[in-house]
Design a protein around this nucleic acid. Sequence first.
DNA 1: CCTTGACTTAAAGTGAACTTCAGCCTATAT
DNA 2: ATATAGGCTGAAGTTCACTTTAAGTCAAGG
Lengths: 123, 123
Amino acid sequence: MTISEVSRLYNISADTLRYYEKAGMIPPVGRTDGGIRDYGEADCSWVELAICLRSAGLSVEAIAEYVRLSLEGEDTITPRLLLLKEQRELLMGKYEKMRLAMERLDYKILKYEQAQKSGVLEW
Amino acid sequence: MTISEVSRLYNISADTLRYYEKAGMIPPVGRTDGGIRDYGEADCSWVELAICLRSAGLSVEAIAEYVRLSLEGEDTITPRLLLLKEQRELLMGKYEKMRLAMERLDYKILKYEQAQKSGVLEW
DNA sequence: CCTTGACTTAAAGTGAACTTCAGCCTATAT
DNA sequence: ATATAGGCTGAAGTTCACTTTAAGTCAAGG
């Protein structure tokens, strides 16, 4: 698979794919004889993981660290597990903040809808 | 309340509070005769709302727009409601992405824990 | 009076995550 | 063979949300 195919597949720019690789968020992708990236299944899985975690707000840094450990071999299972758990905690914190904000928005939306129906804004 | 008190209360720097005001994320704060900011209850509520929405990922721009409409008067209820609903949708999208990433992390964590127990990494 | 903390504008700096650019190379179709 | 579409690189540029700096003025308390 070429970079533009992967780009279309995951709806992410080719530039960003190259950037992700350079930043270490995915392991180095295989190349053709001419030096052009040729994404295999494993490469795609890494890309997918990176996109999923980034879109949830994990830092480039954290994802790169996980990949770095993964490439280092099986001795790194413990630190990898630690990293994943830490990131999960971080995510949980953000999740909670979002839930709170959403509750707040819902309350306001409700109030505005009531005001709109009754034509009154006192509350 | 002085700016430093509000700063301590919400754990946000005085600089950021001034920035939020300048950016329109909160309405202009009342002043003493000497021109020093004096935060009242309403000001604090605005600050709280701004912090809550920012921490959930709403843009400075969107929050400022909501405040701008609020200050414009009661004629703006409809656009305000629209704005809140739009932002809620945006938030929902992010929320969903986070849920997905969390599921993925949980799956990986589980696998790593199993691997750690059995001493095997094949999966 | 003097210190401490608040005020101003305007601009530069920071860090994160891309994005764009310039200039060159590869692949494929004609 | 050549045109053209797409890929490569490193470096510089952009955007967002602050944060800091400069270079002052002003105010409240001991």
